[in-house]
Design a protein around this nucleic acid. Structure first.
Length: 561
RNA sequence: GCGCCAGUAGCUCAGCUGGAUAGAGCACGGCCCUUCUAAGGCUGCGGUCGAGGGUUCGAAUCCUUCCUGGCGCGCCA
């Protein structure tokens, strides 16, 4: 529709230039927008405003000319010049109803597109090290990352989700030492408790499970406890598997799935870390100083150079990071999105710099990053800081337990990742219209409830039934709904392109609000079956779009509540 | 000090990448409501878009300076 109108404008312009009523040296790009205010019609163009200067003419005058020169089109009810020189386009009623039929036909595929053209894309998210339970911040990463995967898959990309973790570094040693200390009956209050040890109660749980010789089956790890408190290596392997399994369970409860779990240690085992160092040295981007090996990241926009091999011989974290991303590139992911907490933003420049130094074929801005800001959790108007079990932060598990998966996912994905958010437990728990999750799900359930009623009364009822009668839907509230429904594909396309899943949540909130208003103002199950069927078909279209949107967010669409 | 993110109604946040009078929910005021199961519905009040300057026909949106808040500035990850 948008393209067709843009074409009409182009034809009008060509005709005007040919008739020398407009100068020939103008080369406008046609901007056509959805209107914000329905008094301005369905679409509006600012073309006359942008032409005013180059054509040295009054914008309203140009708009009038274009309006007159527009070819006839059966989908346009009228056009008008408004304000400083906007051209407003009003689509015919028949034409705006078409979206309902389209939704009924496309079903759960409505809103999907082929933007990605089947290209390979990877989303890496969560990537928590197995040193403790997942906390709210990881939850936000999981909600945003998983929703991104869903959005991108729905828009034609061949998506692979990946979880990367360090299973061998300093922090894992601290973990192993902490568990070992617990095995020997020590607690964090003891003097001989390891420096930088992990203090949460869960360390004790890992220790007793290890001593009991339990078998641990994580997604990518299978280990049995050796029960020997002196075997630090066995403890390390066991603890990693144990905590990985815990994280698996949390992610499963959150309905988040990963295609690949990638271990940092594999980069060492495969020799990729060494070959990356060798390539960087060979490329002339390194130098030795103070016994360490430095990468000249300042050549690629960093504010200072970075150590890649410490004077004691070990590598800093950032080197395997570069090797890891080279590995991603070599796997053929032309587009990679890394979803992580904003506290890691400094790695962005570093990783890209390392990649630039390695391979000029890699685009400068590769990979993409989506960085989410902090989450604070509130209960009874007060900030919740502690999780007894984890010893410091609120765990994802606590939240899912308390407010449920749907509310947790919704609240964590409903705001722009770049803004800090407050997670209000009381609001998430509330079963009233104050709670947007409830409000949206309720709209969905409401339609299901009506349809159930009709089917109970007369047996079969299909949404096809009302399509022939859509012309009866002339109420303002009905037009408002159809306008909103028509926008869904653009909202999805935009959310995927800009990596902004929260716009789906905003859209659903608006659609649901408009539906509730409609439902409250107009009887649906009425005597006049033609009008009834038309309204039910529109309602079914609303339901379908809500379901599709909620699916993109990883939130369920219940048929009754 | 440097870098990243943010600052929009009393509160929590949107704002379709530069458009027309800045939006929603909560809170607050008023009026309805006992229903197609719905813990409600309608309506009103409320804003110098952190501040100044600039670009533009047109700025919450782009540039710039400052202010405030968060995060990060290790041979930690």
């Amino acid at each position: 529709m948008k393209q067709e109108i843009a074409q009409l404008i182009q034809q009008a312009l060509d005709a005007l230039v040919a008739a020398e009523r407009l100068p020939g040296d103008i080369s406008p790009t046609i901007a056509l927008d959805r209107t914000r205010d329905k008094a301005h019609g369905d679409y509006a163009s600012n073309i006359a405003l942008t032409l005013a200067k180059p054509a040295r003419m009054n914008p309203r005058e140009i708009a009038e000319l274009i309006c007159e020169a527009l070819p006839q089109a059966d989908f346009l009810a009228k056009t008008e010049v408004a304000g400083p020189g906007f051209i407003n386009f009003f689509v015919t009623h028949t034409s705006s109803q078409a979206v309902v039929e389209k939704i009924i036909e496309a079903g759960e595929l409505f809103g999907h597109n082929k933007d990605g053209e089947g290209r390979k894309l990877q989303v890496e998210f969560v990537s928590a090290n197995p040193t403790g339970p997942l906390h709210v911040g990881h939850g936000r990463g999981a909600a945003v990352g998983d929703s991104l995967c869903r959005l991108l898959a729905a828009t034609g990309w061949d998506v692979s989700s990946e979880f990367y973790y360090n299973d061998a570094g300093q922090q894992i040693s601290n973990l192993a030492l902490s568990v070992q200390a617990r095995c020997k009956g020590l607690g964090p209050e003891d003097e001989s408790w390891p420096e930088d040890g992990y203090k949460g109660d869960y360390i004790g749980e890992v220790a007793s499970s290890y001593l009991a010789g339990d078998r641990i089956d994580a997604q990518d790890q299978h280990v049995s406890g050796a029960a020997d408190p002196d075997d630090l290596d066995a403890i390390r392997q066991f603890a990693v598997a144990y905590l990985r399994r815990e994280q698996d369970l949390d992610l499963k409860a959150f309905d988040v799935h990963f295609d690949i779990y990638f271990l940092e240690s594999s980069l060492y085992n495969s020799g990729e870390v060494d070959s990356t160092v060798a390539a960087l040295i060979a490329g002339g981007h390194t130098y030795e100083q103070d016994g360490a090996l430095w990468l000249r990241t300042t050549d690629f926009g960093d504010d200072k150079d970075r150590v890649m091999r410490k004077s004691e011989g070990g590598y800093t974290y950032f080197l395997p990071d570069v090797a890891y991303h080279l590995n991603k590139w070599n796997r053929g992911f032309g587009r990679v999105i890394n979803e992580q907490g904003a506290d890691h933003h400094s790695t962005v420049t570093r990783v890209r710099a390392g990649l630039q130094a390695l391979n000029k074929a890699i685009p400068e801005g590769w990979p993409d990053y989506v960085l989410h800001q902090m989450v604070t959790v509130m209960r009874n108007g007060e900030e919740v800081k502690l999780s007894k079990r984890a010893g410091s932060y609120v765990t994802l598990h606590d939240l899912i337990d308390e407010v449920g998966r749907d509310a947790t996912r919704y609240f964590l994905v409903a705001r722009a990742p770049s803004s800090q958010i407050t997670f209000d437990i009381d609001l998430a728990l509330s079963q009233s219209n104050d709670n947007p999750v409830y409000y949206i799900q309720y709209a969905h359930a409401r339609v299901c409830s009506m349809l159930r009623k009709v089917r109970d009364e007369q047996g079969e009822w299909s949404a096809q039934t009302g399509i022939a009668h859509l012309g009866l839907l002339t109420e303002e509230a009905e037009k408002t709904l159809m306008r909103r429904l028509d926008r869904f594909p653009e909202v999805v396309a935009n959310a995927a392109r800009q990596s902004e899943p929260h716009t789906i949540a905003t859209y659903l909130r608006e659609l649901s609000g408009e539906f509730h208003t409609y439902y409250n103002a107009h009887k649906m199950l009425i005597e006049d079956t033609s009008l009834r069927d038309a309204r039910l078909t529109l309602s079914e279209a609303v339901r379908q779009v809500i379901a599709n949107g909620l699916t993109l967010l990883g939130v369920s669409a219940p048929e009754s509540m």
